[in-house]
Design a protein around this nucleic acid. Structure first.
Length: 1122
RNA sequence: GGGCCACUAGCUCAGUCGGUUAGAGCGCAGUCCUGAUAAGACUGAGGUCCCUGGUUCGAUUCCAGGGUGGCCCA
């Protein structure tokens, strides 16, 4: 075998992965390896990735390592597949979380306090705080082996980003997709601001007591003839029929005036009641009290629950019958002009709770507002933004929750309180900052009319490759189908200012700026100087005034944009136009604006990934804005990740104190171990429990096994001077270390692992193409297990052999192929270990780093499924054989004459393929197929607890029939699952118990239809061989104890002990018969049988073969050598 | 209250396109092997495959309902 000039760097099986990784990182930094991968792929097609920008106002947690790892693995893989990924990082810098952080620092918690403090300084601090943890983030990202362009990251607070976000906004405006409207939002009356849905979710409290009142809404005496209210009233004749059925005839009541009964937990909202909603398809009953003849209207399904006993049904209606029926509201705001209170149908009314009649206050409920909007009602407030009830109502001047009691008392006094069932306990949202109960409050805000393009979004979603697939039509599709317009404005400070200027004199005069140039065009002379070096944030931009067409002065509206608007605009806003970028094939590409971008290959992204909580966050804002701006989604594939839970299955959060610091894990076990765990422990989309112990298990199970195999190879490759470049002809196209060989190896073991390897390489590529690193990793893990625990285990002796023959060369070549290919296969998943292995193993002419290499190209013609099956059969047989040996107490060291195998006919042909492996593994001279009854004794007996109830009295007859039957035949049939007939009885497999027992001289074990029997009969020759192997084992241990090197040649002494000299004769004779074998195995230049060891030797007494021997080992004396 | 997902051994997870005896790793108990040795092999204990009903010759698997947990939304 030709020698390699440079030996491989020795690989200790004791490895400290964290230390190894930090030194590799150092190397990558020195080599600027990330840039190098881009240089190598300069002419390649692009693979476009969009980074979902994290907010860097906290230290990164383990879940950030999760998403970053899944970003990285696909980008590394695509690089190796010949693409040049665009992997620009980004930071999300605006929004309430940032403001809150600063509020906390300043010890303030309301808008009034912020304004008093000064918006300019407040925003300055926000800007400063955002990057407080950026160093942590960058360090974590690098340490985790994640390659993102952090130097060139986009930042949402940069002027250029905001300006592009404005451009997008203007484009929306020009399409008529932006409007101002009342919208009911969760509102904190103490902080005087809306809360985002995320914030609301933080503040839900269970078992909150609230009032629970049932209120009378008497059907009105005056029923207007005007049927055209909102176009929804019933035609007069039909309404007249309904009223007449109620007893309202010719303008007067012929029976006690009935009342609708509605239920509410917020009595204060009754001050703003505008309508009663009924379910058009629900059934209602007009019930009459037995006690006093009162008549009320409630849903039939709820009548008993609401009314209790003592009522009888006087008439029945459907909800639709009530349409347009007028009633007398308990309170009428003076500011309400010409409004008629009516019952109206609404789809959201159910009979799940309440009365089936829903009190509707347009200003204080989302569904209420919807109804009001549909009917064209005006939004009338009876409570101010601080939650204080207006004059003219009970409880005026009080906070709403305190006014409730006044209102209930007033209702009671006026005979409108039907029933007070307070308190009602339910889950209610509170402000998570100050603990004030939130009010649902209608306010004007700016909206993006996403519903106008809903069908386009739904269609675009169909084209997205969601992983896992159920997100597409499930969580995300469901969300899209229920799309509502996007309330995009926030009355806050640190955000992208909404670029709308409004005339001071004519509020309907509005201008939208899509750029600084737009501002310059219309800016007033007085404020023009401000444009020079203008910071687009508040309060600076607020000072810029524009000229209105009417001659007036326009000022910016006060709101800033929702931070989701920023991130959703990211595909368009991340570039500072005009910008020149390297496109596909390395060609320079100049983008002058968003339209150029949309037409370029930089849009849409080929791949994005984030956790599942982004479904309604970033995934949505991306899709919405790109559908409205570009007419299609901004991402083609989306991998959705599950959340990480703590060891108890609870969500990690700072407040629970169960957050795992990624540094502690990476410092202890290494980034690769953590990555491998994150990739393989659970399907990417599933919520997963994290524990450091499981990372450790991963390390031992996978990385250390691989490392041991690698270490084994390097040890022997160095001893033998194996140089793959000298064997290039054995690989297809001379690609040393490729899984594709020029021809299949002669040795069936090599042929098998090469078959597995080629199958693996194809499957891993398919998995990674399908965005499934979990599947890829699990396959690789299984392969490494086979490689280590079968291939290497079975091949060890081939590497030990002193002589350099062809078989040994094949073993080297095969293991080399496996390890070099593995290094490439794992490179995207565990970039450190992969690069370390690759750099040591790489053949001449290979790239400097595995990350500059191509992904392995397997050769399907080398995949042999029969051989793969056969190898697994061999493993099962070996396992059963060891089992049989173990139970009969015959050690593996003791050679046996043969192993008997009974197997399914279809497997019989596989046996010859792997017979040599079985012989060696089980230490037998022959493997023979055999009938079941030649391998083991079977006995059958009735399973009485089962058969008893079935057969009753005939059980005795059955027992004798079973006893007379041929046990082996019956057992065979039962094992294969079929029914057996014996003496007129039909037995199912469960009816009879089959027991196996060893035949004399054969130790057997069975697994399903496979039965393996070891012939344990010993001939004198076998016994002698056994003794020799036992002796070799003993000498090896002594060599090691004596501290000899593996290649040291020694002199070995063996004799009977003084006390036992006689009985050792036979054992010594057996050793003499195997002298050559013993000397060769132990590297003993001399084997001195019967000679006691000299005092210089390492010696000791050993029990062996029933005798006591004195065994000694020594290095040869100098004079013996000379 | 709605949507999506999950539920298999003590723990973390495979698997079953409906079919013979449901698996792995870890942990536990024991044995062996060892020139990969801070590895490795074998054995044992440990399972109502969340529950109920339906479809079927047959359901852990398919369907429906329910339960528990997670996420998202009300």
């Amino acid at each position: 075998m030709p020698s390699r000039e440079k030996p491989y760097k020795p690989v200790s099986s004791k490895v400290n992965f964290p230390d190894l990784e930090t030194s590799i990182l150092e190397r990558w930094r020195e080599e600027n390896l990330l840039r190098e991968t881009e240089r190598v792929r300069a002419g390649a097609p692009l693979f476009v990735f969009y980074e979902g920008p994290p907010t860097a106002n906290g230290s990164p947690g383990i879940h950030h390592v999760l998403s970053r790892s899944f970003k990285d693995v696909i980008l590394r893989y695509k690089t190796m597949r010949g693409f040049r990924p665009l992997r620009r990082g980004g930071w999300d810098t605006h929004g309430l979380p940032v403001e809150l952080e600063i509020e906390k620092e300043l010890g303030i918690s309301s808008k009034q306090e912020i304004e008093a403090f000064g918006v300019e300084e407040f925003n300055r601090r926000c800007r400063e705080s955002v990057f407080r943890y950026v160093g942590d983030w960058e360090a974590m990202t690098e340490r985790a082996g994640v390659w993102l362009d952090m130097d060139d990251a986009y930042v949402t607070y940069h002027n250029s980003y905001i300006e592009s976000a404005w451009w997008v906004f203007k484009r929306l405006w020009d399409q008529g997709l932006v409007y101002e409207d009342y919208k009911v939002t969760p509102h904190c009356p103490r902080c005087v601001t809306s809360l985002s849905s995320h914030e609301v979710a933080l503040g839900y409290q269970e078992n909150t007591p609230d009032p629970s009142v049932y209120v009378r809404f008497p059907v009105s005496e005056a029923q207007s003839a005007n049927d055209d209210v909102g176009g929804f009233a019933l035609p007069a004749p039909q309404r007249a029929a309904t009223l007449s059925k109620m007893g309202f005839i010719d303008g007067r009541w012929t029976a006690p005036r009935p009342s609708f009964i509605a239920w509410t937990t917020t009595p204060w909202t009754l001050t703003a009641n505008l309508a009663l909603a009924v379910g058009p398809a629900e059934q209602y009953v007009l019930a009459e009290s037995d006690a006093d003849g009162e008549r009320v209207i409630v849903a039939s399904a709820l009548a008993e629950r609401v009314l209790g006993e003592g009522w009888k049904a006087a008439a029945e209606f459907s909800g639709a019958d009530f349409t347009g029926v007028q009633y007398d509201a308990p309170y009428v705001s003076p500011s309400l002009r010409g409004h008629t209170h009516r019952a109206l149908p609404a789809g959201y009314v159910t009979t799940a709770d309440g009365t089936g009649v829903v009190h509707t206050a347009v200003a204080y409920g989302a569904e209420d507002a919807e109804l009001g909007k549909a009917r064209g009602f005006e939004t009338v407030h009876t409570v101010d933004l601080r939650g204080v009830v207006a004059d003219g109502f009970p409880g005026a001047g009080k906070f709403v929750k305190d006014a409730d009691a006044d209102i209930i008392r007033d209702l009671d006094e006026r005979g409108l309180l039907f029933r007070d069932a307070s308190p009602y306990r339910h889950t209610y949202p509170f402000c998570w900052r100050c603990g004030t109960p939130l009010l649902y409050y209608a306010k004007t805000s700016w909206h993006i009319r996403t519903t106008a393009r809903k069908e386009e979004m739904v269609a675009g979603n169909r084209a997205i490759n969601w992983v896992p697939g159920h997100i597409k039509e499930g969580r995300f599709g469901e969300w899209l189908r229920n799309n509502v317009d996007w309330s995009v404005s926030r009355e806050r400070y640190w955000g992208t200012p909404i670029p709308i200027w409004r005339c001071a004199d004519h509020p309907e005069h509005v201008a939208v700026a899509g750029s600084l140039a737009d501002l310059a065009e219309r800016v007033t002379d007085e404020t023009r100087p401000l444009l020079d070096g203008l910071d687009l944030h508040r309060p600076f931009v607020d000072r810029v005034e524009l000229r209105c067409e009417c001659g007036g002065v326009m000022r910016r509206v006060i709101e800033v944009a929702d931070a989701w608007y920023d991130s959703g605009a990211m595909p368009f806003a991340q570039w500072n136009y005009p910008v020149t970028v390297k496109g596909p094939g390395g060609a320079e590409l100049t983008l002058n604006g968003v339209d150029d971008l949309i037409a370029s290959p930089l849009f849409p992204a080929n791949y994005i990934t984030e956790a599942v909580d982004q479904t309604r966050g970033w995934f949505y804002s991306l899709l919405a804005l790109s559908t409205l701006i570009a007419g299609k989604p901004s991402y083609e594939s989306c991998l959705v990740l599950g959340l990480i839970l703590d060891g108890n299955g609870e969500k990690m959060s700072k407040s629970r104190g169960n957050v795992v610091d990624p540094w502690s894990v990476m410092n202890e076990h290494g980034a690769d171990a953590l990555r491998w765990y994150l990739f393989t422990a659970a399907p990417a989309a599933d919520a997963r429990r994290f524990s450091s112990d499981l990372v450790k298990e991963t390390l031992r199970q996978f990385l250390l096994t691989l490392w041991n195999t690698y270490s084994f190879f390097v040890t022997y490759a160095n001893i033998d001077g194996f140089d793959p470049s000298a064997h290039a002809a054995y690989w297809k196209d001379g690609q040393a270390g490729s899984p594709a060989l020029a021809s299949a190896p002669p040795n069936e073991l090599d042929r098998w692992i090469v078959s597995e390897l080629n199958g693996l390489a194809a499957a891993v590529a398919a998995d990674l193409d399908a965005l499934n690193p979990t599947g890829a990793g699990r396959r690789i893990q299984e392969f490494v297990n086979l490689l280590s625990n079968w291939y290497v285990r079975r091949s060890r002796r081939r590497f030990w052999k002193a002589e350099n023959d062809d078989d040994k060369a094949w073993a080297h070549r095969t293991l080399y192929s496996c390890l070099l290919t593995l290094a490439k296969l794992i490179a995207p998943l565990t970039p450190f270990t992969a690069d370390e292995m690759f750099r040591n193993l790489a053949p001449d002419g290979a790239a400097r780093s595995v990350h500059l290499e191509d992904f392995p190209e397997p050769d399907a013609s080398l995949v042999d499924d029969r051989l793969n099956k056969a190898a697994r059969l061999a493993m099962r047989i070996a396992s059963l054989g060891r089992n049989a040996r173990s139970r009969s107490g015959v050690k593996v060291r003791q050679p046996l004459s043969r192993v008997l195998v009974h197997l399914r006919p279809e497997d019989a042909e596989l046996l010859p393929l792997v017979a040599p492996q079985i012989l060696d593994e089980l230490n037998v001279k022959a493997v023979e197929t055999a009938e079941a009854d030649a391998v083991a004794e079977f006995s059958i007996k009735p399973n009485l607890p089962v058969l008893g109830p079935k057969l009753g009295a005939r059980i005795g007859e059955a027992r004798s029939a079973v006893a007379a039957a041929d046990a082996a035949t019956v057992a065979g049939a039962l094992r294969s699952g079929s029914r057996v007939e014996i003496g007129g009885f039909a037995f199912e497999p469960g009816d009879l118990l089959v027991e196996t027992a060893d035949k004399p001289g054969v130790a057997a074990a069975a697994d399903g239809a496979l039965i393996v029997g070891m012939d344990v009969a010993l001939t004198p020759e076998l016994r002698a061989e056994g003794v020799a192997r036992e002796f070799v084992h003993c000498v090896q241990n002594m060599r090691k104890a004596a501290g000899f090197e593996i290649e040291d040649r020694i002199v070995t002494y063996v004799s009977g002990s003084g006390a036992d000299g006689g009985s050792a004769e036979e054992t010594l004779a057996a050793l003499a018969a195997e002298e050559d074998y013993v000397r060769q195995e132990t590297l003993s230049g001399e084997l001195r049988i019967g000679e006691p060891p000299p005092s210089a030797a390492h010696a000791g007494e050993r029990e062996m073969d029933g005798a006591t021997l004195i065994v000694g080992v020594a290095r040869p004396r100098r004079e013996d050598v000379e």
